[in-house]
Amino acid sequence: MANTVLSQPKFGQLVAVDDRIKRGRILQTVGRFSGGVVIPFASYFFLWAPILVLVLFSFNASRTVDVWRGFTFDWYLNVFNSMGAGSARSSATLMESLRNSLFIGAISTIIATVLGTMLALSMARSKFPGKKIVDGILLVPMVIPEITQGISLALFFKIVFDYVQNTTGERWLPGFGTIIIGHVAFNISYVAIVVRASLQGLSKSYEEASYDLGANYWHTFWRVTFPLILPGIIGGALLAFTLSLDDYLITFYNKGVGSGTLPIYVYGMLKTSVSPEVNALSTIMLAVSTVLVGTSLWLQGRNGARAD
C-alpha cells in the first residue's frame, strides 16, 4: 500500500526539501503515536522502580528489607573485604560465584563471537546448498525455551559421559566445560544475527574493490570487512556476555562442583533471605556497567554526531 501512496516524483521533491524545517511537524505527528511523554515516562519509571529499591536497600542498616533502619556502608565493606582472603564463608562463596560468572561469560563470549561472526559472514556473503537449513538451525536456540535446553543438554552429557566411561574407562564430569558449551550454543545465534545485520547494511562493493586490487580473502576480511563490521561484532559480543551472565537454568542443570555462577548463588539465597551484600554487589555491578555502557554510547553518539 505504501508504494501506491508514494509516487516517484513526489519522493524526489521531498528529498530536496530542507529536513530541519519538516522535522518539527513530523515529530508532532509521531509524538501523538507515542502517547506524548506520558507512556514513555511511566514506562521508564516502571523499569527503574525496582532498581531504585534495590539500590536504596543496599544502604539499609537492617538486614531485612521491609523497614528502613538508617544508612550504612557495611554491606559494601563486606563485599570488598570478601575479595581478600580469610573472609566469611558466605561472602567468599559470593565472590567465587562472581568470578565463575565472569570467567564463563568471558570464555563463552569469545568462542560464540568468533563462531557467530564466521557464520554471519557465511550467511551474508556466500551461497551454498543447504543454506536454508543452516538458516533454520540458526533460529533453533532462539525458539527453544531455556528450561528445555538446560534439561536436554544435561541428558545429552549424561549419555555421552557414560559412553566415554564405558569405552575408555575415563570419567568426564560436568563443570565449567559443560556450562560453557551450553552458553556458546545459545549465544552463537544471537551473535550471528547481530553481525549479519551489520553485514547486510554494508555494501559488498568495499570487499569487491579489495579483491579487485588483488587482496585475498584473509586480507580483505581483516583490512576491510572486519573494521567496518566491528561495531556489530562488539554489539553481538556484549549481548552474548549479558545473556551468559544472566543465565540460570542452563547453568543449573549442567554445573559441576565449584562451577556455580552468581545466579545460582542468588537463587539459593532467595530460598531463605537475600543478604544485603547481594544488593550491594548488584549496585556495584550496575554502577560499573553504567559507566562502561554509558561511555561507549557517548563515544558512539559523538562519532555519530560527527558523521551527521
Binding site: 544435561a154 552429557f157 549424561k158 559421559f161 557414560d162 564430569l173 560436568p174 563443570g175 554445573k255 559441576g256 562442583v257 565449584g258 556455580g260 539459593g268 530460598k271
Partner: peptide, 19 residues
C-alpha cells in the same frame, strides 16, 4: 554446595556424581 530436596539430590546423582 547445597540442594533443596531429596529429589534434587537424587536427580543430580543420577546424572553422575560431579565430584
Amino acid at each position: 554446595e547445597t540442594y533443596g530436596s531429596n529429589e534434587e539430590l537424587i536427580a543430580s546423582m543420577r546424572q553422575g556424581n560431579p565430584g
